[in-house]
């Protein structure tokens, strides 16, 4: 009887182990931590963070700290988000880059971003834009504030392969242009990743 019980328990345990082995074990990792996944074929979340971090440091050091940011009446400068061209082979939501920069600039207290003024007259927040238009009708005066600066940029991808090693470089380029049409700040950050394919092709 005892032997049978032992065998049954053993089979059950083995079944449990086999079942566990087949299931996918998901877990949370810190999005800003060092354990996020790295792939060569895509711009990973930490790549956007690293690029944004470089851009923010550069903006603070050269534009904000240097006192080069000009705005009317000493108020925070108004930033408009222009076009970020995606020249990579993948679908990219550029907000993954620009939003981090906007948040950081907002926290400095020296920059605010307009959500009612955008390319082709289309603001980011249609309701806010409508409210502003309605207020203009009621108050009979223009209320829309023009951006003091616009942020534009480009994402570029370059791939090379040598033997079993594949390399992808993602270049993040941003430009801050004043109302006079002059680029008052420019920055570029390149992130390069390599992966080696095993001889068996796995």
């Amino acid at each position: 009887m005892k032997i049978k019980e032992c065998i049954a328990s053993g089979i059950l345990a083995a079944g449990c182990v086999a079942f566990t082995g087949c299931s996918t074990k998901a877990k949370y990792v810190d999005s800003t931590g060092p354990r996020t996944l790295v792939t060569v074929d895509a711009i990973n979340i930490q790549d956007y963070a690293a690029a944004a971090d470089t851009m923010i440091d550069s903006l603070i050091t050269s534009v904000i700290n240097g006192g080069r940011l000009k705005s009317a009446n000493g108020e925070p400068a108004i930033l408009g988000i222009s076009r970020i061209i995606n020249n990579t082979s993948q679908h990219v939501d550029t907000d993954l880059l620009t939003k981090k920069i906007r948040v950081a600039l907002n926290k400095t207290g020296r920059v605010v971003t307009t959500t009612t003024y955008g390319l082709g007259g289309q603001g980011e927040d249609p309701l806010a834009q409508q409210i502003l238009k309605d207020r203009e009708k009621v108050e009979n005066k223009p209320l829309t504030r023009l951006p003091d600066y616009s942020l534009s940029g480009k994402l570029i991808e370059q791939r090379v392969r040598s033997g079993n090693t594949q390399q992808a470089s993602y270049v993040f380029q941003l430009t801050l242009t004043s109302q006079d049409g002059l680029a008052v700040w420019e920055e570029e950050k390149t992130i390069t990743k390599q992966a080696r394919r095993s001889a068996l092709g796995f």
């Binding site: 800003t32 931590g33 060092p34 930490q46 963070a49 690293a50 981090k100 920069i101 948040v103």
Partner: peptide, 21 residues
Amino acid sequence: RFEWFDKDGILIETPASGYRS
């Protein structure tokens, strides 16, 4: 990663303040 603190020693969090390789 750099962490930044205000005058009261409270951590200031920003969306880009992660680990850099």
